[in-house]
Write a protein that binds this DNA or RNA. Structure first.
Lengths: 253, 253
DNA sequence: CCATTTCCTTGATCAAGATCAAGCCGGATG
DNA sequence: CATCCGGCTTGATCTTGATCAAGGAAATGG
């Protein structure tokens, strides 16, 4: 299920399209960047890129594999190339809460911390570029553009976390489920022209429940309700068709 | 109720005690920093401080006053000197969720954004130092120490937001209330030696409910339960005595 | 191919917390 | 001083979502 990666590169949010990258001075190792949106390559000098590529490893993780554990030493940062990574925290008695999802081209890993405050796991099959911690931090030191990218990602994640707190604290079960579908639809089909979205849920019902602070039964019931209300169509458990994003959004509270 | 501020200064997290500040080269305008823990002054050169002080205003806000509104232009950053600032988001129908609390010496305001994604309000009476947005961003450009401070604050806020997501999504009402008391106790009495904490709640029951994703009735009931269980003593509605922090923490789930 | 297991759905019941309602308390006001 | 008002508490009832339970569907493995 997991495709082999074909070259060493690293991508972090950068306002540069793939075409831009092709046209730039950036060495070949960066050219094959598969990330749909934008890659960070442009934030680095050719020298830095060459240096980086020597230490970067491509990693493929199957569903459920753990990238970093809670209260575990952080040895590397992972750049998401494909798939979805879930960030979670667990209470002593096993109750779990997913506190964030990361899509390409996010960087997984708490900057500067020696110990990860959260667990990062592959929610779907995932492809990663793994950079040694010290390496990235050194680059960060000397490269203002890269620094700004990561500052922006952190601030965006903070905004997203706070948005989600509203969902967790104040929305009903059906609003929660609608909000999640909307979130995933906009991340997986960001550039669709019209109001329709078709995508595969990159996570299990349990993951959904843990992200929404619900039980799987409630999630299942709410999805069934959205289905019978004609807001969505579900086939093969994971394949979702949202004929009108506007109609879905109206359910988000 | 709000004390007058006595001099222009700005304080942002910095590993420098008040004594250090007194002993340093930093000009007089910084000396009267009232923030208990650490001030940022040391992160700035005397020149920068002088320049900054010309543009900094001291502001006092009574309970309930708004510092920045949701989707409102950000013109300045506010450095909290005393009191508690609540960060909140509101749904169309009025449901509200508090998504963070800020204590001295936090900086209030979404860095770089032109539009604030959240509302910031005084939860208690508050004293602030207000810096023009452009000014701080210019300093940020040229001062690595300051940049690191703010990066660290942002990452800490992200960690805190994610911690709170567990509270919102997976804890019971009584665990939520216990978690909040613990949070406030550790912020308001950070350096108490023993296991006892005595403090005044810096927020109303409604604020507490909005922070915990509960109703005021449930909050009230849970506080009464903690009281009758002998975990806490409440006098005058706001004054809390926690004889044993460990016993409280045991309730936090 | 069938057996097993995991994931998902649906139904019945239960309980945590919301809602509705009444009253208390302390401070402000005339 | 009496009244008013906002913030808080407490009680009664209701609703939402959890829990318990059973069975179906799809993936996995022999």
């Amino acid at each position: 299920m997991v495709h082999a990666l074909t070259s060493a590169y690293i991508c972090i949010a950068m306002d540069m399209t793939r075409r831009d990258i092709h046209n730039s001075e950036i060495p070949a190792l960066c050219r094959s960047c598969e990330v749909r949106h934008k890659g960070m390559c442009g934030a680095l000098t050719p020298d830095e890129l060459t240096q980086l590529s020597r230490h970067t490893r491509q990693v493929a993780q199957a569903v459920g594999e753990e990238l970093v554990g809670e209260s575990t030493d952080v040895a590397a940062y992972d750049n998401v190339m494909r798939g979805v990574v879930k960030l979670s925290k667990t209470l002593e008695d096993g109750r779990q809460q997913i506190v964030g999802l990361q899509f390409a081209p996010d960087l997984v890993g708490r900057l500067y911390a020696t110990e990860s405050p959260i667990t990062a796991e592959a929610a779907s099959d995932v492809e990663l570029c793994r950079v040694p911690k010290a390496m990235l931090e050194r680059l960060l030191e000397q490269n203002p553009a890269l620094r700004k990218r990561l500052m922006d990602q952190s601030l965006r994640e903070l905004d997203e976390a706070r948005d989600w707190m509203v969902t967790l604290g104040r929305k009903t079960a059906s609003e929660k489920v609608a909000s999640l579908l909307l979130l995933i639809a906009t991340h997986l089909e960001p550039d669709a022209r019209d109001d329709r979205r078709v995508f595969d849920l990159p996570m299990s019902r349990l993951d959904i429940a843990d992200y929404l602070g619900l039980t799987i039964e409630t999630v299942s019931r709410q999805l069934s309700k959205l289905k019978s209300a004609g807001i969505i169509t579900i086939t093969a458990n994971r394949h979702i068709d949202v004929p009108s994003l506007a109609r879905l959004r109206a359910r988000c509270g």
